[in-house]
Write a protein that binds this DNA or RNA. Structure first.
Length: 149
DNA sequence: GCCAACGTTGGC
DNA sequence: GCCAACGTTGGC
């Protein structure tokens, strides 16, 4: 079992949208970054827990927790020429982009990016430096710190 | 809306 | 394979 942090823009897809999706969950699509893709495809496993982080909004923050209910599958949008996520270099035989399915678990009292940056006990979290990575690992220790914050 | 950081592309 | 130019992300 591992822990992750996934970013989303709440204007596009928020934790409330994830909650609304209920038990069937939501396919986490549209990741188009190789480092993030590698995590999704190779490392994220069924039942892993995921922090949902809201970015590009008033108060960027970790806002809740989700659970992986299905491991990596090819992102169908990469084959759809009408989609913004279309990738002509990808093929069904050798898909380039993947997503996983997440299910809402709970909201958290938001932990803002400012609070994370100010917390001297949080040193490993990639969010502190790699501000552009949209899927990143979270250590168990820091998961504990952040869930009890 | 600005700008820094950084990933990607493409010429050589 | 290097590196400059360019595009995108995301905090502020």
């Amino acid at each position: 079992m591992a822990y992750w942090l996934f970013k989303t823009e709440p204007d596009t897809f928020s934790i409330d949208d994830l909650k609304s999706a209920g038990e069937q969950g939501t396919f986490w699509e549209g990741v188009r970054n190789y480092q993030a893709r590698n995590f999704l495809r190779d490392k994220v496993q069924l039942n892993d827990l995921v922090f949902i982080y809201h970015s590009s909004c008033k108060v960027p923050a970790i806002v809740g927790i989700a659970k992986v209910t299905k491991a990596a599958q090819p992102d169908p949008h990469q084959f759809d020429s009408n989609s913004d996520y279309f990738d002509e270099k990808s093929s069904a035989d050798n898909p380039r982009w993947y997503g996983v399915t997440l299910k809402y678990v709970q909201h958290l009292k938001p932990v803002s990016l400012a609070a994370i940056k100010a917390n001297p006990n949080i040193v490993e979290l990639a969010l502190k430096k790699a501000s552009r990575l949209s899927v990143m690992p979270v250590s168990e220790h820091e998961w504990q710190l952040l869930t009890q914050a």
